[in-house]
Nucleic acid binder design. Structure first.
Lengths: 261, 261
DNA sequence: CGACCCTACACGTATGTACGAGTTGAGGAG
DNA sequence: CTCCTCAACTCGTACATACGTGTAGGGTCG
């Protein structure tokens, strides 16, 4: 704390004390007086500096944490969050020319960026689709789908979970049912099966993670997720796959190109 | 509370008491036992039910609030958050055929969906661009840009703030400098000036709002924002506008169409 | 019958206390 | 010199208490 100087409280302000303290610390972070990875003064030090109760300090720190600015580590301290390198997802990432190079989009992109990609928790089952999935795939309620779920990691850090749904009628007995779906991924397999892909539609929402999602992606408090649902359409207009993914918003920036025509 | 039955605490669990309580309430919300807009039992009632201190209850409620599941209203109670109707942004929303119909994209779409659109806080200034904006527009550090900032509302509820940057060289002395930029918006004006738009590139991040953003968009705690930066390119490859927008993630779903070619 | 006020009740802010549990580094034992 | 123990420091959880401030409903007074 020798380094970091914090202002005093303004007793004339009607802004709550814990908010004033949160403002001071937020300010220090935004100014760069506290850099990424730096330790925020301990609760005890802040109590002493401001002359307030511990709960007041904890409320202030809670504000910053829920803003995603800091993380607390039990027994160590509170630290300014450092942001991992961001993966940019380009809108041509599913272009055929990429599939033809023989690697799944995720593996190729991550290696190119100098990271070590991995995929785990691969599970493949057959099930009856939810009404939402059935509608997207144009299926009847009692049709069956193949469900491929998996988790993507970069340098051992989970960044995304994905669940794909493919009509069982299409996927049954094909390499799509194998954990390793082969070069180019399942989109390459679908094209080999005669479903020339025409376009994809992606729907993107942003929200706070559910408990299970926060766990699976090891998300710090205050980190939202992208919830992206992509539907793949074959040339005849038929939907052949729906992919439901949850991505750490820390790890991703999405980019899209839109026509002006 | 006669209606809502909550389990008792599990004293053998090593899960913190406030987390167990949060789990019970989250569960009730997910089951639908507590529906959107319903009042969560008051702190006093929960204290009585569980036989714990108020801080323990408040910690539990804090968890739900930061997950975006509930909102507290001073003097009234804690309520299950209700989600406003979602505006879907289609990837063809900036297609020329829409501009030619004479309304800005936001106005037309909102009216079509049966809402009342409005725009306020329109400010137009001239400034030197930040390095990031200068790079996107292909400008030198000392070139000037026109800055158009505004806020969009639906039925009086703010949903989005936007700041556009246009090279001063292009916009100076044109209707782009007027608060009401005329039929079809500034993209129509740019085309009238001879800059046939070719395509847009949008970059999307998701994060928790800054304090000012939460205020401007009246965001409840636990609601993240989309931060979208769109660059408009003319036929000759020149960037003619950058639009930096912050959108309530509650109010929007983004959709994009990707080619498979 | 309407306007006002008062009172429960709700959450917001703040103090003080206590103990638990993870981390770290200094110092002592071998 | 190395290993281990332990103390000090950190955040996590929980209790008890007090008062402030916003809301809403009912009763009272004009």
């Amino acid at each position: 704390m020798a380094e970091l100087s914090l202002p005093d409280l303004d007793p004339t302000s009607d802004r709550a004390v814990f908010r004033q303290i949160a403002d001071h610390l937020r300010d220090a972070i935004e100014r760069g007086a506290l850099a990424q990875g730096d330790k925020v003064p301990s609760e005890a030090r802040l109590m002493e500096h401001y002359g307030v109760a511990r709960m007041t300090i904890r409320n202030a720190l809670q504000v910053l944490q829920s803003e995603g600015l800091t993380v607390a580590e039990h027994g160590r301290g509170v630290f300014v969050r450092s942001h991992p390198p961001v993966r940019r997802l380009a809108s041509d990432r599913f272009a055929r020319r990429h599939r033809e190079q023989g690697k799944a989009a995720f593996i190729a992109e991550t290696e190119e960026a100098g990271g070590t990609p991995s995929v785990d928790s691969i599970k493949i089952t057959e099930a009856t689709p939810t009404p939402d999935i059935a509608e997207r795939l144009g299926l009847a309620a009692k049709d069956r789908v193949i469900v491929r779920s998996r988790r993507y990691l970069i340098n051992g850090q989970p960044v995304e979970t994905a669940v794909s749904y493919i009509p069982a009628e299409i996927a049954k007995g094909t390499p799509i049912m194998q954990p390793d779906s082969g070069p180019g991924g399942i989109y390459a397999r679908l094209e080999e099966l005669g479903f020339q892909l025409d376009h994809f539609i992606e729907e993107i929402k942003s929200r706070m993670p559910l408990r299970d999602e926060a766990k699976a992606l090891r998300l710090a408090p205050g980190v939202p997720v992208f919830h992206l649902v992509r539907t793949a359409y074959a040339g005849d207009g038929r939907a052949v796959e729906v992919c439901d993914t949850v991505m750490s918003s820390d790890a991703y920036m999405l980019t899209y190109e839109l026509p002006a025509r």
